[in-house]
């Protein structure tokens, strides 16, 4: 029972890891608080949902979702770089536009994907392979391999000439331009890549949970951010490959924490609907931790001095 619970959370955590890698690119590499994620995540899900319902090969939904997500990121990027709209506002504008676009794509607020309705998803195909490994271990293994490949590709990309230009833009825009980096292009590429990954996560998650829903993007940016900062708090890596690893580990830890809170939380009066509240509180606590720590330390030394004096 507990093993099943943990495996389930790890599966979700691995899919969230893809989302978190996307959020890492915008928030940390580019230093761009991109809120379009709340729209590009259900965008990927919507595309996967409608394609599968129409009987298209579920593997084909992935590149289409990535492409659509990249376009969403590009829109945010253009709003910011060409039209000089503030990053937060640019992301929110894309997000709100995507809400209607996602409804258009799905043609209804919810699409159910079920083997009983004859829908073929990536999950149902993997389960139908009849491999010697039991499917409860096979699914997390496949997810793990997918995330691993994406992580390694991202590591590699961030060490290319273009990847370095994007990192420099996020670190020090003035320097990047002085060294001949087209910082507008760097932002556009980074945001496209970020939202492409986020939409990929959405497309996979819809197939994993068996439905796509117009509301499934709400608070995803905070979930992604929670994964990134949880990972940073756990590992504190300095090299790119360590940091991307901690982002994925953070996503799994975050899902485990949330699942545990939901499973046992009702003893303390929590309800499943408190999920977003819990996520919000978790992010607030982690963000406030450094400040609270110094304050507590100060108070402690003050107390100590008083005791010595007294």
């Amino acid at each position: 029972m507990l093993a099943g619970f943990i495996l389930h959370s790890v599966e979700e955590g691995l899919l969230f890891g893809i989302l978190a890698l996307g959020v890492y690119i915008s928030f940390r590499v580019l230093n761009f608080p991109d809120l379009s994620v709340d729209g590009s995540y259900p965008l990927g899900a919507a595309i996967a949902g409608i394609m599968i319902v129409q009987g298209i090969n579920p593997f084909l939904t992935l590149p289409v979702a990535v492409l659509a997500g990249a376009l969403a990121g590009l829109l945010t990027g253009i709003l910011h770089t060409k039209l000089k709209i503030n990053p937060l506002l640019a992301g929110i504008l894309t997000m709100i536009c995507l809400y209607s676009i996602n409804l258009r794509i799905m043609d209804r607020p919810n699409i159910s994907l079920s083997p009983y309705l004859g829908h073929k998803t990536i999950i149902s195909i993997i389960k139908g392979l009849n491999l010697p490994l039991k499917s409860i271990y096979l699914i997390p293994l496949v997810f793990f391999l997918v995330v691993l490949v994406l992580k390694l590709l991202l590591d590699l990309f961030l060490h290319t000439q273009l990847g370095l230009a994007i990192r420099a833009t996020g670190d020090n825009e003035e320097m990047a331009r002085a060294e001949g980096v087209n910082t507008d292009t760097a932002k556009l590429v980074g945001l496209s890549l970020s939202n492409g990954l986020v939409a990929l996560a959405g497309a996979l998650f819809a197939q994993y949970q068996g439905f796509a829903d117009i509301g499934m993007g709400i608070g995803m940016i905070i979930a992604g951010l929670a994964s990134v900062i949880t990972g940073e708090a756990l590992i504190r890596g300095r090299t790119i490959s360590l940091i991307t690893m901690e982002v994925v580990v953070g996503a799994i830890a975050y899902r485990l924490a949330i699942a545990a809170a939901l499973k046992w939380g009702y003893n303390f009066g929590f309800k499943p609907t408190d999920l977003k509240l819990l996520t919000g509180l978790l992010v607030i606590i982690i963000l406030a931790f450094p400040i609270l720590r110094t304050k507590i330390k100060k108070r402690a030394t003050k107390l100590q001095k008083n005791i010595i004096r007294g």
Binding site: H159, T160, Q161, R167, N172, A176, E179, G180, V181
Partner: peptide, 24 residues
């Protein structure tokens, strides 16, 4: 750029005026 290594900073500088592609 503080978060980049010394050689990465140099690698950005040497590509001034050149295209930045997918090469290491």
């Amino acid at each position: 750029a503080s978060s980049l290594t010394l050689e990465e900073n140099l690698a950005i500088a040497v590509l001034r005026g050149k295209k930045r592609g997918l090469r290491l």
